[in-house]
């Protein structure tokens, strides 16, 4: 069973790499935040799997709850920040002047 858990953990990690690409490349700021959000939820999953591997899920599940909740907080804050304060691209509002507020 441990073998399957290790394999699924590694698979999860490998599948995070394309999302990492999205974080690095963008193109918009919100793209990056969505990717960070996805990686955040997957990290909570990964924490549970690691806990099962260490035979200590009871400890890791607390981390996972805190992580998931704070992840939501982070993306909510980012969404509100980009919604009111800043346009996603700096250039649009400067050039176009109609930044849809």
């Amino acid at each position: 069973m441990d073998f399957i858990l290790i394999c699924s953990g590694i698979a999860l990690f490998l599948m995070m790499l394309p999302i990492m690409y999205r974080i690095v490349v963008g193109p918009t700021a919100i793209d990056r935040i969505v990717a960070v959000n996805v990686i955040g939820t997957k990290t909570a999953v990964l924490l549970i799997i690691i806990g099962a591997l260490f035979h200590n899920v009871a400890m890791f599940v607390d981390f996972a709850i805190a992580y998931a909740a704070l992840n939501f907080l982070g993306s909510l804050a980012a969404a509100r920040y980009f919604n009111r304060t800043r346009p996603a691209y700096g250039q649009v509002s400067q050039e176009g002047g109609d930044a849809d507020e």
Partner: peptide, 8 residues
Amino acid sequence: ASYILLAL
């Protein structure tokens, strides 16, 4: 964080 969430 819960209060920050409330504020958001």
